[in-house]
């Protein structure tokens, strides 16, 4: 579905961020992109939706050549790729609902979006997505009033409201605690399965990558040095990607943790529900 061929990025300063990247992402595949900081992971996914301009090579999404698009065509292409960010990248002073609806910006005109007059179907879909990520109660909260995990859920809902064919996910768990990280990764995984979405996930945490991805690509200094199944990722390969380290001491994820994970999440949702009622109680 997504094909990168010979993609390279050289900054005006002469630094090479990416070199001859060849990757094909089939429909519905969740691919984790791992590698040390500065290996070019962020640059790679930003090249796909052209937040960063690649200097060489071709990127095709279905039948559209992305590298040559501009203006209206580029915006149309961008709306078919949902992006999820490391620091959530929500607009703090807008409400949760406004943040999610901003995923629809590629579909509506300026005045419509400026006056917040979104089509009924878009609003209903936004609400359904918020319900799905467990934040229906928080639609009128300001984004900066949420916890890290909740914000990332809003970010996910925003990306999905674009009705994307593909998710570009940039370090979704870097600012989250271990448990929330796992919940977020599981959510992304489930949503990809539900909608048959492909995804490229940049991630630092190798254990999470192994657990939640179908395929792992290792990047080092702008070049692909590993491409294979999570099970093939051995200590030797980690050494080629990251350099020398005693990889065996990396703790394996515990199965029991995974089964319990959904329970506390719903408990917390209830707790913040109470807070919402208390906060809005005076106004209603």
């Amino acid at each position: 579905m997504l094909t990168l061929s010979g993609v390279g990025k050289r900054y005006p300063t002469g630094d090479r961020a990416l070199n001859e990247i060849e990757v094909t992402l089939p429909k519905g595949q969740v691919m984790a992109l791992i590698g040390p900081s500065g290996a070019g992971k962020s640059t790679l996914i930003r090249c796909v939706n052209r937040l960063v301009e690649p200097t060489e090579g071709n990127i095709r999404l279905d039948d559209v050549e992305l590298t040559s698009l501009s203006g209206h065509k580029l915006r149309q292409a961008r709306r078919s790729m949902g992006m999820i960010f490391q620091e959530y990248a929500l607009v703090d002073r807008l409400s949760v609902m406004e943040n999610v609806l901003s995923g629809r910006l590629g579909y509506v005109g300026f005045w419509r979006s400026f006056l917040r007059r979104y089509p009924q179907t878009a609003v209903a879909e936004a609400f359904r997505l918020l319900e799905r990520v467990g934040l229906a109660h928080a639609i009128d909260k300001r984004a900066d009033a949420l916890s890290g995990g909740q914000r990332q859920r809003v970010g996910i809902a925003r990306a999905l409201l674009q009705s994307p064919k593909l998710l570009l996910v940039d370090e979704p768990t870097a600012s989250l605690d271990p448990k929330t990280s796992r919940q977020i990764m599981r959510l992304i995984r489930e949503l990809c399965a539900e909608r048959d979405l492909g995804a490229i996930i940049n991630i630092h945490d190798v254990a999470l990558a192994k657990q939640f991805a179908d395929r792992i690509v290792g990047l080092r200094a702008g070049e692909i040095v590993f491409d294979g199944q999570p099970s093939e990722l051995t200590a030797d390969i980690l050494t080629t990607i990251y350099g020398e380290e005693e990889w065996d001491t990396t703790p394996e994820p515990l199965e029991s943790d995974e089964q319990n994970a959904t329970r506390p999440a719903s408990k917390r949702t209830q707790a913040s529900n109470v807070v919402t009622h208390m906060a809005t109680g005076g106004a209603s």
Partner: peptide, 19 residues
């Protein structure tokens, strides 16, 4: 001055206005 429950219900129907 509607309650947040009402707003949620309306949003579910696809009707939402900025606060």
């Amino acid at each position: 001055t509607m309650s947040s429950k009402q707003r949620q219900h309306l949003a579910q129907q696809g009707t939402w206005r900025r606060l």
